[in-house]
């Protein structure tokens, strides 16, 4: 009887484990089925390299290059802001702050992660947009830069918590060895601790990027949503995620436009999948 119960419990846990994988596979299959349907009527090179996204034109244009570049520019901007900020924060929490402050800071960073993206978008729209507009003398404050800054704050918690983990788990004996050789605390941090934690640091950056590239609500509110080829970071852009969110409600199910949005989702899925793969590889890197 006891053995029977054990078996049931084991099998249930196993089933739950497989369920996660099953969901990912199902989502991918569903996305691929409807996404790839676009290419029956629309050439794939026009989709990937077309410079015009205009579903209502006659004939409709589904070139994702402006949207792709919009995503890239916002993500790059956010990364450039978030990585140094997050890294400095992680080093401070992991290495420099006294214990009582460490707990407060960690809780604060976690709280930052808990802010809903709509709130970030809302604050960005009312506070950040006007500032960007004024500083750079722009016609509108809703630009790629505005989105980048807001997204940076959404990426920072991910980056800090993973990096801090990596830094704190560097064996104590490395630190002692370095200090015992007469290195200063700062020399120890940048010559031993950061190289020793490098795989975790790379993973943190990649997951931060993954967080940013998939974000929708805040970018939709802050980037101006102009689906044109972006010229500078100070111009309004439109990202892939914002496009899907904005247009999905207006399409007819089964239409070319509908399939195009699925294809866009598929591209997004592949990008985040790739980023996660790189992060994972970095975490499990074997040294020669």
């Amino acid at each position: 009887m006891r053995k029977f119960r054990e078996t049931i419990i084991e099998k249930t846990i196993l089933l739950n484990g497989f369920a996660c994988i099953l969901f990912v596979v199902l989502i991918f299959v569903f996305l691929a089925k409807d996404g790839l349907a676009l290419f029956k009527t629309f050439a794939i090179q026009d989709f990937l390299f077309g410079q015009m996204w205009s579903p209502l034109a006659e004939p409709p244009q589904f070139g994702i290059l402006p949207l792709f570049l919009g995503s890239v520019i916002v993500t790059l901007g956010a990364t450039v802001i978030a990585v140094p900020l997050g890294m400095a924060c992680a080093i401070f929490i992991g290495e420099i702050a006294p214990r009582w402050m460490r707990e407060i800071l960690k809780a604060g960073v976690e709280l930052l992660a808990a802010i809903p993206s709509i709130v970030i978008g809302f604050i960005g729209m009312t506070m950040l947009g006007p500032v960007v507009k004024q500083i750079f003398h722009l016609p509108t404050g809703l630009t790629a830069l505005t989105g980048s800054i807001a997204l940076a704050f959404m990426a920072v918690p991910t980056i800090v918590s993973i990096m801090e983990d990596a830094i704190s788990s560097v064996p104590r004996i490395y630190k002692e060895g370095s200090l015992a050789l007469g290195a200063t605390h700062w020399q120890t941090i940048y010559r031993v601790i950061i190289p020793a934690a490098s795989s975790g640091i790379v993973a943190a950056v990649m997951l931060g990027i993954g967080r940013v590239i998939g974000e929708t609500m805040a970018v939709m509110m802050l980037t101006g949503n102009a689906s044109v080829m972006p010229q500078t970071i100070l111009a309004p852009v439109r990202t892939m995620t914002a496009t899907i969110a904005a247009e999905m409600g207006e399409t007819v199910r089964g239409s070319e436009h509908y399939f195009a949005l699925f294809a866009l989702g598929l591209v997004l899925f592949l990008i985040t999948f790739l980023i996660n793969l790189v992060a994972d590889a970095a975490l499990h890197r074997k040294r020669k």
Binding site: E176, S178, A180, G182, A183, R191, V192
Partner: peptide, 27 residues
């Protein structure tokens, strides 16, 4: 620098052999 220490568990840094030995002089 004057009073060096060897630890219980060997603790070379996760760097190359050269960089380990050159660590002190570099710092």
């Amino acid at each position: 620098k004057k009073v060096g220490m060897v630890f219980q568990r060997p603790n070379p840094f996760p760097l190359s052999i050269f960089d380990n030995v050159a660590y002190g002089p570099r710092t």
